[in-house]
């Protein structure tokens, strides 16, 4: 274990979030045990009031976690200055076996927090606290995952070794390399791109047909597909280097921070897409599927633009 200010701050934020969520957890358990809208006891009134505390906490933690994940990436980026071999966050994430899991769990948790808030808003709009029990049961799951995230984070930072040489993104995402992503890397990038555009077309069809469940499922697939396509097909065009595959370097100033925009579009689009399945039941009105589709389209448009622009400039395809 060694600490930089960024690590201390990351841990501070997560400890704070966890402490607050622990309060919400106690509330959740009490509500699951005793919440009964039909009863007129003072305990029931107290529980109704406490549910506001829990939802405030969840909203706050979500509001902290969204910028914090970008700060986490920044922390990793900075660590790449210290850890030999790392050129960007990619090398630091894979510096030990916990990094990749931690990172994925962080993203999953943000999606779950978002879904929870949708359910919470829906609950406030029912005249009898219809979803209160459901949302706190859901919260228990989230709490366990956040706890896991915290443990993983401690393990990850605890096992960072600055004397050990790690791989840079150049080797990690190289097709010939032996890396965790080697299985995906072995697929022809053109096939990956094809699958990516096919999924996008399927989203369009689902939106036209107004099939929310299908759209939701496709959005769930679109998130990993877009990430993989970004790494193996689109990033060489963004970096203008046939061998440079990396999902993190696009966050750096050399590429005009385009990564932040791309990931924001992708996250909002897929989040609303996934949530669209629950929307009619919870919110009592369907979500306009063109909203998430619009975000997806912007994402697809920007990454495609890089490919076309490169071709227009150089008259060759990179892959």
């Amino acid at each position: 274990m060694f600490f930089t200010p960024e690590i201390v701050i990351s841990l501070l934020i997560d400890t704070l979030s966890l402490l607050l969520l622990a309060i919400a957890f106690v509330v959740a358990v009490r509500i699951l045990l005793w919440f009964d809208y039909g009863s007129d006891t003072s305990r029931q009134y107290a529980l109704e009031r406490q549910s506001y505390l829990a939802s405030t906490i969840v909203a706050f933690v979500l509001a902290v976690k969204i910028p914090a994940i970008f700060y986490f990436i920044y922390t990793l980026d900075r660590l790449s200055l210290v850890i030999p071999g790392a050129m960007c966050a990619a090398g630091v994430v894979t510096a030990n076996e916990y990094g990749v899991w931690l990172f994925m769990l962080k993203i999953v948790n943000i999606y779950l927090f978002g879904l929870w808030l949708v359910l919470h808003i829906a609950d406030l709009h029912t005249s009898n606290y219809h979803y209160t029990r459901a949302k706190f049961a859901f919260f228990l799951l989230i709490f366990i995952l956040v706890l896991l995230e915290f443990v993983l984070e401690l393990l990850y930072f605890g096992h960072l070794d600055i004397s050990q040489v790690v791989s840079c993104c150049g080797t990690l995402f190289n097709r010939a390399a032996h890396s965790p992503l080697a299985l995906v890397a072995a697929i022809d990038p053109k096939v990956i791109a094809g699958a990516f555009y096919a999924l996008y077309a399927a989203l369009l069809i689902a939106a036209l047909a107004k099939k929310e469940w299908l759209f939701s499922l496709l959005s769930l697939l679109f998130l990993p597909a877009a990430t993989v396509a970004l790494i193996f097909f689109f990033s060489p065009y963004i970096y203008e280097l046939p061998t440079h595959h990396c999902p993190f370097c696009i966050l750096q100033p050399e590429y005009h921070y385009i990564g932040y925009l791309l990931y924001a579009l992708l996250f909002i689009g897929t989040f609303l897409g996934i949530a669209s399945a629950f929307w009619p039941k919870w919110m009592k009105k369907p979500l306009n599927l063109w909203i998430p589709f619009g975000f997806d389209t912007l994402f697809v448009g920007i990454v495609s633009f890089y490919v076309l622009y490169y071709y227009y400039q150089n008259h060759v395809w990179l892959l």
């Binding site: 200010p5 701050i9 501070l12 704070l16 402490l19 309060i23 505390l53 405030t56 700060y71």
Partner: peptide, 25 residues
């Protein structure tokens, strides 16, 4: 600047949550 922000502001806001909720109910 981000580091300074994350080291201090969430801490302060977190401390206000419970008292704020108490007065709101």
């Amino acid at each position: 600047l981000l580091s300074i922000f994350f080291a201090t502001v969430p801490l302060y806001l977190a401390a206000t949550i419970v008292p704020t909720w108490r007065s709101s109910v």
